[in-house]
Computed example of a mutant assay.
Amino acid sequence: MPSGRTHDRITYLSLPPLAVIAYLLTGRGEWLLWLSGAYLFSGLMFGPDLDIYSLQYKRWGMIRWIWLPYQSCFKHRSFFSHGLIVGTVIRVIYLFSIIVIVAIFVVAIAQFIWGFPWNWRNVAEYNFNTLKNQYLGEAIVTFIGLELGAMSHSLSDYWVSHFKQSQKKPKKRRSRRNKK
């Protein structure tokens, strides 16, 4: 399988053609930025190799510990980490869950200190409606960028592994006559 630096090169080199294709298909510059940013983020920091101690994992710096439960749940190169669409969906849900847990603690502490009213249901409904009504296109394009970044990683793993397997020379069989 390719090294982390090879995956990085693939990400950087495939971004310009991807950006051109995306702009030709959508004609929207802001969607191109969302897609390109998500593609780079996924290729460099949010890809399938978060299930091991990898370059992507190390790039999370001081907060990389948030990926330890993820690593313990999924075997490296499993369908759930490297699978097309499934791997990205699981990582998005996982990261969103971590963000929500941290937000709960931060808001609870802020409520305790400043005593302001807060209703989680209202906040969730407001954010969901805003996303659905105003930013649905951007959300879809962002997810596509995240998935394309992960796909470039998983497909390059597959191609390199397949190539290496095809290059192995078959072992010569010893016939019964040659055993003496």
Rank of each mutant, 00 (worst) to 15 (best):
S3H: 08
R5F: 11
S14H: 09
S14V: 08
P16L: 06
L18G: 02
V20S: 00
I21G: 06
L24V: 10
L32K: 04
L35A: 03
Y39T: 00
S42N: 00
F46Q: 02
F46N: 01
D49Q: 14
L50T: 02
Q56I: 00
K58E: 14
Y70I: 07
C73L: 15
K75F: 09
K75D: 07
R77Q: 09
R77I: 09
S81T: 11
H82F: 06
L84E: 08
I85D: 05
V89Y: 06
I93M: 14
I93G: 08
Y94T: 04
S97E: 09
I98H: 02
I99T: 09
V100S: 12
I101K: 04
V102E: 09
I104N: 03
I109E: 06
Q111P: 02
F112W: 14
V123W: 12
A124N: 03
E125F: 13
F128I: 13
T130H: 12
L131E: 02
K132H: 11
Q134W: 09
Y135W: 15
E138V: 08
A139E: 08
V141L: 09
T142Y: 03
I144F: 11
D157W: 09
V160G: 05
V160H: 12
F163S: 14
Q165L: 12
K169W: 06
K169I: 10
P170A: 14
K172G: 13
R173D: 12
S175V: 06
